[in-house]
Amino acid sequence: MALLRLTNRHGTSALLSTFGARLVELLAPDRDGALGNIVLGHDTEQQYRADPGPYFGATVGRVAGRVADAHFIGGGLEFDLQPNEGSTHLHGGPSRALDRVEWRIGEAPDGASAVFHYASPDGEEGYPGTLDVTCSYRLTDDNELELEITAETDAATPVNIVNHTYFNLSGDARESIVDHELMIDASAILAADKRLLPVGGVLKVAGTPYDFRLARRIGDDLPAGSGEPWPGIDSTYVLDQSARPAATLWDPPSGRHLEIRTTEPTLQVYTGNRIEPVAGRSSAPHGAGKGICLEAHRVPDSPTLPDWPSIVIQPGERYAQRTVWRLGAR
């Protein structure tokens, strides 16, 4: 595992790893200028290998999300995958998903960028076609961390790649994210069963604990009885695609603020409900509710979602997504 650090003129810096093309550390200033690490993670590759389940900071795929019964149907394709969550296929599989492999460092156009490449061979984790993936991070002097992911294939194959970073803007993983204020520009979530698999249709968030159209404290109304081991959120928000950011996050004590804009149609919001207690980066205590994922992505094909576009790409087509995390303090 090799590490690369990007730094801008404000002292903001992003530490990146070739193992899983992941964001390991993100140092950002609070309202007084003090730097703090605002993402969860580990110190070594061995720790990431021993604790793969949380997917801390990783590039996840080939298909992020859940595929029912590890059997993909969509876009004219039908094939079996490797299950790794009961009978479900989760986040690309158990052994050679994108978060479990070493990426090659590519040539960056400037010192503010890091480019990672991985060629996933035909048949890896059951997926057809060789998939060439590029993941690029760029840290600007406007305190924006830009993420661009592209992929091309030599045979029809599904692609839905996301970044699985957990944010805790306090800069102290001993603190929970329940006191953060969250806004999500979404009027609906995908309807799902207890296995978090889509059942068809959407649920309007109005009048429910899932409504974050106006910024509010996360812990004010967590969805009790959701079946989660910690009473948090793990839902797919269908973005309204308005002029607003897809989401904003604010930690009042530190003043740190995060704004997310993306090309993607949905945001998977996960409050770390199933993170087992573990000593994370610099021995920081990680556990349920210590970080929140705001994952921009597409919706994997499912017979229950016939009206959603297929995520299958063909030879000659290019998968591309762009997400920007804008950091600030107030």
Rank of each mutant, 00 (worst) to 15 (best):
G36I: 07
G36S: 13
L40E: 06
D43T: 02
Q46C: 07
Q47G: 03
Y48P: 03
R49F: 08
A50V: 10
D51R: 05
G53Q: 09
P54C: 04
F56S: 01
A58T: 07
A58L: 03
T59C: 12
V60R: 05
R62H: 12
V63R: 08
V63L: 07
A64P: 06
R66F: 14
V67I: 15
A68S: 15
D69Y: 05
D69Q: 12
D69E: 11
D69S: 07
A70T: 02
A70E: 02
H71M: 06
H71P: 08
G74T: 00
L77Y: 09
L77E: 03
L77F: 08
L77D: 06
F79H: 10
D80I: 00
L81E: 03
Q82I: 01
Q82C: 10
P83D: 05
G86E: 14
T88Q: 14
T88A: 09
H89L: 03
H89D: 01
H89Q: 05
L90Q: 03
G93H: 10
P94I: 08
P94V: 09
R96T: 12
A97C: 15
A97D: 14
R100Y: 08
E102T: 11
E102W: 08
W103L: 05
W103G: 04
I105W: 00
G106D: 11
G106M: 10
E107W: 01
E107G: 00
P109C: 07
D110Q: 04
G111M: 09
S113V: 02
S113L: 02
F116I: 06
F116K: 04
F116N: 05
H117W: 15
H117K: 04
Y118M: 05
Y118L: 09
A119F: 03
S120I: 06
P121M: 09
E124Q: 13
E124Y: 04
E124F: 07
E125Y: 06
E125A: 04
E125M: 06
G126P: 12
Y127N: 10
Y127C: 09
D132P: 00
D132N: 14
V133L: 03
T134H: 02
T134K: 06
C135P: 00
C135W: 02
C135M: 08
S136T: 15
S136H: 08
Y137C: 00
